[in-house]
Structures are given as structure tokens and as C-alpha cells.
């Protein structure tokens, strides 16, 4: 996805029959594939979470700290808001604000990922290892891949923010990149909401 985000000279067939910039269209198409990627992961977890793996084992659900995860979910949700603010600031031509909100989004994302690291650490300390049973395997794989997506998003945000800092502002072409990263970021956010509801809340 990085190549879409950075590929600022590419795309944009001159006709643009759909009326949508090719890069944006490409991002939408890519995200539709990502949707199935997470669909398969969530399905996996739901499949294994209800199974009985014998006595003496540990299930992720026994260790959930819902208040903690709620807060980190809220943080991620807020990062979508700051992302929108970054985008609208750019639309107004307010380069300083754009930069600020991009950094803010990256920061909130980082807080979320740190929370996930902390959660994984806690779980592992309690003995919920990757190889304790398939449900644990599926839990880590699902949340881990989501975390990886957030990390990639943070990287892209930082690239944009630093670029803006170095050159004193983002050009219009790069503005589209803000939009693309925004799309990606909202997608990752929405997926988390689904995970939070299906994996954490509905037990």
C-alpha cells in the first residue's frame, strides 16, 4: 500500500471515466481485498474461540480487560477524527494545521499500538502463549495483523508529516496522498471496531 501512498506521479488516467482519481480508486479496490483478509482472520478466531481444548488451558476471553481495551479503542477512534481534521486543514490550505493533525493521528495510533503491546505482554505473563491452543493462536494472529496495519499507517503518516515539515507544506499532489492515507487509516479503524465488538464484547 505504501506504493500507492507514495506513487504520486502515477495513476490518474487522463480520462478517469469514473470521475475518481486512479490512485484513490486503486486504494478503494485494494481495501476491498483487505476487507476479506480481515474477514478470514475474524472468521478464524470465531471458529476456534468456542471450541474445547481440554482442561488446564487458557482462553483469551478469560483475560480480556474490557475497560482498558475500550480506552485504547476510543483512542484509535479519535485518531480517525484527527485524520479528518488533517484532511480538512489541507483542503483549507492550512499547512501548519495539516502537519499538526497528521502528527496527532500518528501519536494516537502509536498510543493504540503501545496499548496492544502492553495487552500482549500481560496476556503472555498470564500464560496465554501463542502455542497454548488454536484459539490463542487465532487471537494473536488477528490482533497482530491488525496492529501491523496500524504500524504501517503510522509510518505513512509520519512520512507525510515530516515531508510537510521539511518542505514547508504539502503540494496538491501530495494532498491526495493525505487523502489516500486517510482512507487507509479509516479502514483500519473500522476493522478495529468490528474486532472489538466481535472478539472482545460479544462473548
Amino acid at each position: 500500500m505504501a506504493d500507492i501512498a507514495h506513487g504520486h506521479e502515477e495513476g490518474g488516467g487522463h480520462h478517469q471515466l469514473t470521475g475518481i482519481d486512479s490512485r484513490k480508486l486503486g486504494m478503494w479496490v485494494f481495501l476491498s481485498s483487505e476487507f476479506l483478509f480481515f474477514g478470514a482472520l475474524i472468521n478464524n478466531y470465531l471458529l476456534f474461540k468456542g471450541r474445547d481444548f481440554g482442561p488446564g488451558t487458557l482462553y483469551p476471553v478469560e483475560l480480556y480487560d474490557i475497560p482498558f481495551t475500550s480506552i485504547s479503542s476510543f483512542v484509535l477512534l479519535m485518531s480517525s477524527l484527527t485524520m479528518v481534521l488533517a484532511h480538512s486543514a489541507l483542503a483549507r490550505g492550512d499547512q501548519d494545521q495539516t502537519k499538526t493533525w497528521l502528527f496527532a493521528t500518528a501519536l494516537l495510533g502509536t498510543i493504540f499500538v503501545s496499548g496492544q503491546f502492553f495487552e500482549f505482554g500481560e496476556f503472555i505473563l498470564h500464560g496465554l502463549k501463542l502455542n497454548i491452543n488454536p484459539a490463542a493462536s487465532a487471537f494473536y494472529m488477528l490482533t497482530g495483523f491488525h496492529g501491523l496495519h496500524v504500524v504501517l499507517g503510522i509510518l505513512m503518516l509520519l512520512v507525510l508529516a515530516f515531508k510537510s515539515m521539511r518542505t514547508g507544506g504539502l503540494s496538491e499532489a501530495e494532498g491526495l496522498n493525505v487523502e489516500l492515507v486517510g482512507l487507509y487509516w479509516h479502514f483500519v479503524d473500522i476493522i478495529w471496531i468490528v474486532i472489538f465488538v466481535l472478539v472482545y464484547l460479544i462473548q
Binding site: S33, L47, F48, F53, N131, N133, M141, F145
Partner: peptide, 29 residues
């Protein structure tokens, strides 16, 4: 492709990192 990607990740993780998705003795499927 995303579906086979997940399946291949599961297999690779089983083989490399000790997950248990397909290990029948441990409740895998």
C-alpha cells in the same frame, strides 16, 4: 487472494512459530 494469504500465513506460523491452527493433536482443524 486474501483468503489463501491467511491460510498460508497460518501454515507458515504453524511450521515456524508453533501456532496450532492445523495441529489435530492440539485441537487444530
Amino acid at each position: 487472494l486474501p483468503i489463501i494469504a491467511i491460510a498460508l500465513f497460518m501454515l507458515t506460523f504453524d511450521r515456524q512459530f508453533g501456532t496450532l491452527f492445523f495441529v489435530a493433536e492440539a485441537g487444530g482443524d
